[in-house]
Design a protein around this nucleic acid. Structure first.
Length: 585
RNA sequence: GCGCCUGUAGCUCAGUUGGAUAGAGUGCCAGUUUCCGAAGCUGGAGGUCACAGGUUCGAUUCCUGUCAGGCGCGCCA
C-alpha cells in the first residue's frame, strides 16, 4: 500500500517539477502511517521537504501536487493539513483487503523476501561451559533466538551458532575443580581453592566421575598440595595457587586421564546448557568447538597469515598484533611469552573461519561488558583483508537483578547466581522470553524477580495470549450454539465492517508486515512485542464494544472472519518470538 | 583519565530513522457483568523529554558542551 501511494506521489511530483521548471535533486518520497486517525491513514511530507530547494510555500506545493495526483481506486480522499502534510484516506475496500490477505497466506502472512536468501550467521550466548547459564545469559538467548527468527521471516538464510570455549585456562580451572571435589569425595581432606568453581554442580560432576571410574584418579591430598604456593586467604596469590594445582593435576593424572576428568566436566555442563536452552525454546544449527579450531591448526594458520602480512611483531617474548593500525587503543598479544596462544588468537581464527564459510552477514551478539573487545576483532578482520562491514556486533546490556528493592549479586565462582533454569521454573518459558525481549537490547534492564514471580499476571504476555485464547473461545462458543463459521460468507460481507473499532483493527493488522520487516532489519525484537500488545488491546476493546455472534448472520460471519485473521496474526507474531499461543488458559 | 551505553509520567519502558496535541503498562482515583472468558473494558489525575547551546520550515530524535548512572580499559576468557 505504501509503495502504491509512493508511486502516485511520484507521478504527481514529476508533473509538478515540469510545470514549475524546477531543476533540483528530488528527495526520496516518504509515506508514513499516521499516528492519529484524524490525519487519515497515510501521510506524506514531500511538500515540506521541497519548500526550501523550490523556494515555495509548502502548503502551495502540496496544493499543486494534490492537483496533479492521479486517481486511485484505493484512495477515497486526500487532504492538505498542518504545515503542508498530504494526508491520504484509504477506501473501506482497501482496508478490508488485508483480512483476505491474512487468511489466504496464513502462517506466511507477514513474511517477506527482503533478505533475498542471503546467508547470515548469528552467534549468541556462547557462555563458557564452566557452569549453568544464569539469568544474564537468558537475555542473550532470548534476544539472539528472536533476532534469528525475525531474519528468517524476512527471507534470510540464517545459521545459528554457539561458540563453545572448550579450551583455555578457565576450562582447566573447571577440570581441576572437578578433580579436587572428586578427591574430597574419595576422603581426602584439604581446603578447596578460593579461585576454583565453588558451585555445587561441580560436586555432582565429581560424584558421577566417582560412580563411573571408582577411585581410578585418586591421589593423596598431601601429594597433590606438596610445594603448591599458598592460596590468597593464606596470604598467597589465588591465580598462582590454582594454576599450580592445574599443572599438578596434569602431571599426576597424565594426559589421557586428565582429559577424561576435563571432558567429564565439560560434557556434563555442556549437556546441561544444551538442554536448558532447548527447554527455553532456543535452537541452534551448530555448536562450534574452540578446541577443534586449535587442534586442527587453524589458529596457528591464522597467526602465520598475520605474520606474513606483517601485522605482528615481537616484544618482551610475546607476539603482538598491531590493532592500533586499525583504530584500537593499544596493540594486543596474540601469542604469550610462554608460547601459548591467547583467547584472542582463537577468536581471530574463528572470525576468519566465519568469513571462509561464506556468510554474507556475520552477527555476533555479546554481553555489553565485552564492548571493549569490538575494536580488536574488527581490526583483526581488516588485517586479514576481509570486509569488516559484513560483521555486526550487537550488544545486550545487563539485566540487573532485584529481589524487591534488593540487588542480587551474581558470581559464577561462588555459585550464588540465579540460574536461567530457576527463572524458567518460576515464571515459565513464555513469560521469561517475552519479558526479556520486550525491552530494547541496548537498554539497561531491571529484572525484579519478585515481580516476575509473584505478580506474573501483570506480565503483558498473558494479555496477548489471552487475546488469542479469547478468539478461540468465541469459536468454541459458536459451536456450542450449533453454529459454524462460513469463511466465504464472511469474506463477501467484509463491507459490513465499518465500525471505528473494526477499522482500527484492520489498520493494525495491515501494518504487521512492516513491523516485522522493521524489527528484522534493525534487530529490534521489542517492537514486535509492543505491536502484539497494541493488537491485543485493539482486540479486547473491540470485544467489549461489540457482540460478535448475533442474529445478523451476515454480520456474524464478517466479524468471525475478522477475528480469525486477528488470531492468525497473533499466532504468527508469537511464533516468531518463541512464545506459545494457547487456545485456552 | 580515555572509550561505549543510558537519562522521557511515582515506577518499568515505547516513541515507526527529523513531523502534527510526547504514548503504553503498572500504581492511584472513579465506574463497568441478567449478554461470545472481568487475566477484560471505560474515564480521570500524573511531563521543564536530565541541563545549556547549535543545525532548520520543524528536534524527545542530529551536533557540541555540562551533569548523573551503568559498563569496559590484562601476556583472563
Amino acid at each position: 500500500m505504501k509503495d502504491q501511494l509512493k508511486n502516485l506521489v511520484g507521478q504527481a511530483l514529476s508533473i509538478f517539477t515540469q510545470q514549475q521548471q524546477l531543476e533540483i535533486d528530488l528527495p526520496e518520497i516518504q509515506i508514513d502511517r499516521t499516528k492519529d486517525k484524524k490525519h487519515g491513514d497515510f501521510a506524506c511530507n514531500i511538500a515540506m521537504m521541497l519548500a526550501k530547494p523550490a523556494k515555495m510555500n509548502p502548503r502551495q506545493i502540496a496544493t499543486e501536487i494534490v492537483a496533479a495526483l492521479p486517481e486511485s481506486e484505493f484512495v477515497s480522499q486526500v487532504e492538505i493539513a498542518g504545515p503542508g502534510f498530504i494526508n491520504f484516506y484509504l477506501t473501506a475496500e482497501a482496508s478490508q483487503q488485508v483480512v483476505l490477505d491474512i487468511l489466504s497466506k496464513g502462517e506466511a502472512y507477514g513474511r517477506s523476501q527482503v533478505g533475498q536468501g542471503k546467508k547470515v550467521q548469528v552467534e549468541f550466548v556462547s557462555a563458557n561451559p564452566t557452569g549453568p547459564l544464569h539469568v544474564g545469559h537468558g537475555r542473550g538467548a532470548a534476544y539472539g533466538s528472536v533476532v534469528s527468527s525475525l531474519l528468517m521471516a524476512a527471507g534470510f538464510d540464517v545459521h545459528r551458532e554457539y561458540y563453545v570455549n572448550d579450551a583455555g585456562r578457565q576450562m582447566d580451572i573447571l577440570g581441576t575443580s572437578v578433580w579436587l571435589r572428586y578427591l574430597q569425595a574419595c576422603g581426602e581432606h584439604f581446603t578447596f581453592p578460593s579461585n576454583g568453581y565453588q558451585g555445587s554442580y561441580v560436586k555432582d560432576i565429581a560424584a558421577e566421575l566417582m560412580q563411573e571410574y571408582g577411585e581410578k584418579f585418586s591421589h593423596a591430598g598431601t601429594e597433590v598440595f606438596k610445594d603448591i604456593p599458598a592460596d590468597e586467604p593464606e596470604g598467597g596469590d589465588k591465580e598462582m595457587h590454582i594454576d599450580a594445582l592445574t599443572n599438578r593435576a596434569k602431571h599426576l593424572l597424565g594426559d589421557a586421564d586428565y582429559r577424561i576428568v576435563f571432558d567429564k566436566g565439560l560434557n556434563a555442563i555442556l549437556d546441561d546448557i544444551r538442554q536448558d536452552l532447548a527447554e527455553f525454546g532456543t535452537e541452534y544449527d551448530e555448536w562450534f568447538s574452540e578446541r577443534s579450531l586449535v587442534e586442527s591448526g587453524v589458529v596457528d594458520k591464522a597467526i602465520e597469515q598475520l605474520k606474513a602480512a606483517g601485522q605482528l611483531y615481537q616484544d618482551k617474548g610475546a607476539w603482538w598484533f598491531k590493532s592500533t593500525d586499525y583504530g584500537d587503543e593499544k596493540d594486543r598479544v596474540v601469542v604469550r611469552d610462554n608460547g601459548q596462544a591467547t583467547y584472542f588468537a582463537s577468536d581471530i581464527a574463528y572470525h576468519l573461519n566465519k568469513y571462509q564459510r561464506g556468510f554474507e552477514q556475520i552477527i555476533d551478539i555479546w554481553g555489553a561488558d565485552h564492548h571493549g573487545y569490538i575494536p580488536r576483532v574488527k581490526a583483526a578482520v581488516q588485517a586479514m583483508s576481509q570486509n569488516v562491514d559484513q560483521l555486526k556486533v550487537l550488544l545486550v546490556q545487563f539485566a540487573v537483578l532485584y529481589r524487591g528493592a534488593e540487588k542480587v549479586g551474581m558470581s559464577t565462582r561462588s555459585g550464588e547466581f540465579v540460574t536461567l533454569r530457576e527463572l524458567r521454573e518460576e515464571v515459565g518459558k513464555d513469560a521469561a522470553r517475552f519479558f526479556y525481549v520486550m525491552r530494547g537490547a541496548d537498554q539497561h534492564m531491571d529484572f525484579d524477580l519478585e515481580l516476575a514471580k509473584s505478580q506474573s499476571n501483570d506480565n503483558p504476555v498473558y494479555y496477548v495470549q489471552y487475546a488469542h485464547a479469547r478468539v478461540c473461545s468465541v469459536f468454541r462458543q459458536l459451536e456450542e450454539r450449533g453454529l459454524s463459521w462460513d469463511e466465504t460468507v464472511g469474506q463477501n460481507n467484509l463491507s459490513r465492517l465499518t465500525e471505528a473499532h473494526e477499522e482500527a483493527l484492520m489498520t493494525r493488522l495491515a501494518s504487521y508486515p512492516e513491523v516485522l520487516e522493521n524489527a528484522a532489519l534493525n534487530h529490534t525484537p521489542h517492537i514486535l512485542a509492543h505491536y502484539l500488545m497494541d493488537l491485543a488491546r485493539d482486540f479486547h476493546t473491540y470485544y467489549n464494544a461489540h457482540q460478535f455472534i448475533s442474529d445478523d448472520a451476515a454480520m456474524t460471519q464478517a466479524r468471525l472472519t475478522l477475528i480469525a485473521s486477528v488470531r492468525q496474526v497473533i499466532r504468527n507474531a508469537l511464533t516468531v518470538m518463541g512464545v506459545s499461543a494457547p487456545e485456552s488458559m
